[in-house]
Design a protein around this nucleic acid. Structure first.
Lengths: 110, 110
DNA sequence: TTGATAATTAACCATTTGGTTAAGTGTAGA
DNA sequence: TCTACACTTAACCAAATGGTTAATTATCAA
């Protein structure tokens, strides 16, 4: 149980640790896209993008729907639940830190 | 500039991607600790812990103060500013996603 | 049916990561 | 001064990561 959460966080954070993958996620917040479309901004081979997508998918951050020969990628709906879970975990795991942050910010106004 | 931010996020997220490092950070939210103290919960060599600490330090998540032969590790004060920066970036970068999340949650009450 | 297109899988490669043991640095204390 | 202690650095290793090219799968359309 704890182990599951831990592994999940591992996957989420390592998925987010790559700039290409973050850019892809950012793009997807503006709506679904095909693999080819997602590839365009990068000077990178198709298999490289394919691997990034698989990592995002396995981390639960992205979903895929095949329509004919094109794959449509999107964040929803389960990635939204996933993101919520992630944010929630952040808030619980880092609770102490966030509290300290508030105190620090109060004690050190701009 | 953008590149700096990007690299910074890379460092932050890959630092957070390791369970040992997250556990160390969690421990530090309860106050400063020596390297030896931080090591105790793990069945891991001292050099291994040393490397993890260096990664956290380089990501700006941890600070170190040498008192004699013992090193005291803590989150503050700059790590707090750092964490704030990180959260802020999350909120701006993922703005669209978070908005969608709220809509999703409204449309799908528990 | 045949050829082009969208995408993945397979095989490979260099670099990074996360660990180890052994040796080194610097401080504390008898 | 000598030894124990806290910790890091050096050198090494196996596995994971992020990329490549070549081959494969599956669909569309002429």
């Amino acid at each position: 149980m704890v182990n599951y959460q831990t592994q999940h966080l591992d996957h989420t954070f390592s998925a987010l640790a790559d700039p290409t993958r973050r850019a892809i996620l950012q793009r997807l917040t503006r709506g679904p896209a095909t693999v080819g479309e997602l590839r365009k901004p990068f000077s990178m081979s198709a298999p490289a993008i394919s691997k990034h997508l698989r990592i995002l998918e396995q981390a639960g951050l992205m979903e895929r729907q095949k329509k004919g020969r094109t794959h449509w990628c999107s964040l929803g709906p389960s990635p939204l639940a996933n993101a919520e879970e992630w944010i929630h975990k952040q808030r619980t795991l880092w609770n102490g830190l966030l509290d300290s942050l508030e105190i620090f910010l109060e004690e050190n106004p701009k």
